[in-house]
């Protein structure tokens, strides 16, 4: 129904697309370490050697783990399998709370201690009015 040229142009576009998708996939796969914004405590535990570079650790702030001492904040980041202790001095984002997501940027002292130079609160995908949250909490 269509001419030969039309079919060839179609094939041409399909080939470009397949090549691009495969290339992108391979590049992203090999760069995975750099594409992720943060590592979880379990991934830190599994590190074969400690990095001297600045890294980011993310997870949940463990319940009842926040200790505020003058202007130093200490808390524990957990992914419910492994934990890491974080100490931090500086401004805290409004949404930083126990039981909520957090990303800390800084340096590893060892596999259990992390010294953060910046803290970001991670927001989750749940959006609801306060009344609904309360109702959910009472259940």
């Amino acid at each position: 129904m269509y001419g030969r040229k039309v079919k060839l142009r179609f094939l041409f576009v399909v080939l470009i697309l397949i090549t691009l998708i495969l290339t992108t996939f391979l590049v992203l796969k090999s760069l995975e370490e750099n594409v992720v914004y943060f590592q979880s405590p379990s991934e830190i535990k599994a590190l074969s050697e400690l990095d001297k570079k600045k890294i980011r650790v993310g997870g949940m702030v463990k319940k009842d783990s926040i200790l505020i001492n003058s202007n130093e904040v200490k808390f524990i980041i957990t992914d419910f399998k492994n934990e890491i202790n974080v100490s931090y001095t500086g401004a805290i984002p409004n949404l930083f709370e126990e039981g909520k997501g957090v990303v800390a940027e800084g340096f590893l002292k060892d596999r259990n201690f992390f010294s953060a130079s910046k803290i970001l609160a991670k927001h989750d995908e749940n959006y609801m009015p306060p009344e609904v949250k309360q109702a959910l909490g009472e259940k």
Binding site: D124, E125, N126, Y127, M128, V132
Partner: peptide
């Protein structure tokens, strides 16, 4: 696919959305 600071999608066509209907 990756750990991102940005939250995952709240609105899902196939499963329940995690955004309240009033929003």
């Amino acid at each position: 696919w990756w750990n991102t600071l940005h939250q995952p999608a709240s609105i899902n066509i196939l499963s329940k959305s995690s955004i309240h209907s009033s929003m």
